[in-house]
Amino acid sequence: MNRPYIIGIAGGSGSGKTFFLNRFLDHFSADEVCLVSQDDYYFPVAHNMTPEENKLYNFDLPSTIDNEQFENDIYKLIDGQVIYKKEYTFNNPNIEPKMLEIKPAPILIVEGLFIFHFKAIDELLDMRIFLEADGETALQRRLKRDLHERGYSHDDVMYKWENHVVPAYNEFLLPYKDDCHKIIINNTNTAENIQAITDDISKELREKILS
């Protein structure tokens, strides 16, 4: 297999990155695209923490990611190898982690907060996509997710937002915005807007990569 076309997709918390990715992946079959998520490479520390320790621990730092393994798995996919990785469940005891089987494909998507900051990974990217939402919109999305899906208290969410999430975004992601090929502003919750954008990008990739 030829070297895959590698797309890096990054956005701050609440930028709508997951929704964008899901709509984007809808355009392709499993043998056309594969996805590697930075979130699955957190060092396994959360399961040993008390709720208070979890609140104070800053997950929004590059040092919390096993970047070496993340990078090695990307190289394996480039080399045509299948990788196996246990899913990260964000310290949710109600979720049984799945073993992920990721097969190489002509298009490789790498997503996560630090993918542009990790230089070795950034240098592999053929296309960089930056998702952005204004602060209040992003915060409301974060609150909805963490309160309902992850069981955090309002105070815990706000503490992490103010002390971890926003500083990390400003230091480790925002400086790379202007170097990205596509900047997508996602302040609405209207599916049609994101659908139209993913339609255009997928059409471009089909003509350039998959034709």
Rank of each mutant, 00 (worst) to 15 (best):
P4I: 04
P4M: 13
G8E: 12
I9M: 08
G11F: 07
G11P: 11
G14P: 09
S15E: 06
T18Y: 04
F19D: 07
F19L: 12
F19N: 10
F20E: 10
F20P: 07
F24I: 00
F24R: 08
L25N: 03
D26C: 10
D26H: 11
H27G: 13
S29M: 02
D31I: 09
C34G: 06
V36P: 02
D39R: 05
D39C: 09
Y41D: 01
H47N: 09
E52R: 13
K55F: 00
L56C: 00
F59C: 08
D60A: 06
S63V: 09
T64V: 13
D66L: 10
Q69M: 13
F70H: 04
F70T: 01
E71T: 10
I74P: 07
K76S: 15
I78T: 12
I78K: 14
D79M: 08
V82E: 13
V82W: 05
K85W: 03
K85I: 01
Y88N: 04
N92H: 02
P93C: 05
I95F: 02
E96M: 11
M99Y: 05
I102M: 05
K103H: 11
A105D: 10
P106I: 12
L108H: 08
I109N: 03
V110A: 08
G112E: 05
L113C: 10
F116E: 05
K119G: 00
I121H: 09
D122T: 03
D122K: 06
E123F: 01
E123W: 01
L124R: 13
D126W: 03
R128D: 00
I129W: 06
F130N: 04
E132P: 01
A138Q: 06
L139F: 15
Q140W: 13
R141N: 10
R141P: 11
R142M: 03
L143R: 07
D146A: 00
R150L: 02
V157Y: 05
V157R: 02
M158T: 01
A168Q: 12
A168W: 07
N170L: 15
E171M: 15
L173Y: 05
P175S: 09
K182V: 15
N186T: 06
N187T: 06
N189C: 00
A191W: 05
Q195N: 14
A196I: 12
T198R: 10
T198M: 04
K203P: 00
E207R: 14
E207Q: 15
K208A: 15
I209Q: 11
L210V: 08
